[in-house]
Amino acid sequence: MKNTKTKMLCEAAIFIAMAEILSLIKLYEFPNGGSVTLEMLPIVLFAARYGCGWGAGAGLVYGAITYLIGNKFSIDWTTIICDYFLAFVALGFGAGLLSRRKWSVYYGTLIGGVLRFLVHYLIGVFVWGVYMPDEFFGMTMTSPWFYSLLYNGSYMLPSIILCVVVFALLYKPLKKYFTSADLLAA
């Protein structure tokens, strides 16, 4: 039992570090935060292997580290708590809901990604909406609900799709890790 927890904590540390490294490789970054990256990949994989409780914990640690050492953008404590801590807890929790199944990484990416999007979306409406520009993507902005949907959806949807594609490309060679077969055999 002790050996299993030690292995899991070491794996969590490695996956959190990998997520932090992947967050630095940005395909596109918006001026007020949010970028298209693969940072969700390791958190989703960890949660798909160990479940929603451990996934939420890994998400919390990743969110804290990202905010503390990253070059991130926030305006007050609510944006720090929601955009970093709560968003990645939601990612890890959602990604672990259907853990240790054949398609866990895909379901986890979709469920966790949508939950993370919802956190960003709601904080975008209630806090960032005050800073809504008059025009975004060539459209006149009159509603913080629509603005937050456009803003957060324009980086979260590509990030979710990118993670699913990478998991699909790596599924065959890493299947035993994606389905947790290596853990179940031990």
Rank of each mutant, 00 (worst) to 15 (best):
K2Q: 14
K5H: 05
K5T: 01
T6L: 09
C10I: 14
E11K: 00
E11H: 01
M18K: 02
A19R: 01
I21R: 04
S35C: 09
L41N: 08
L41K: 03
R49D: 04
R49T: 05
Y50L: 14
W54M: 11
A56R: 11
A58C: 10
G59L: 09
Y62P: 08
G63L: 01
A64I: 07
A64F: 08
A64R: 10
I65H: 06
T66E: 05
Y67F: 10
G70F: 01
T78G: 00
F85I: 02
A87E: 12
F88D: 15
V89Q: 09
L91N: 11
L91V: 11
G96R: 13
L98D: 12
S99H: 15
K102M: 15
Y106E: 10
Y106V: 11
Y107V: 05
G108S: 04
T109H: 07
I111C: 03
V114Q: 09
F117L: 11
V119H: 04
Y121K: 00
V125E: 10
F126C: 08
V130W: 06
P133F: 05
T140W: 05
P144I: 06
P144C: 03
Y151A: 03
G153A: 00
S154K: 06
M156Q: 13
M156H: 12
I160F: 02
I161T: 13
L162E: 12
V164P: 04
V165T: 04
V165H: 15
V165I: 14
V166F: 02
A168P: 06
L170Q: 05
K172C: 01
K172P: 00
Y177G: 06
T179K: 15
L183T: 13
L183V: 01
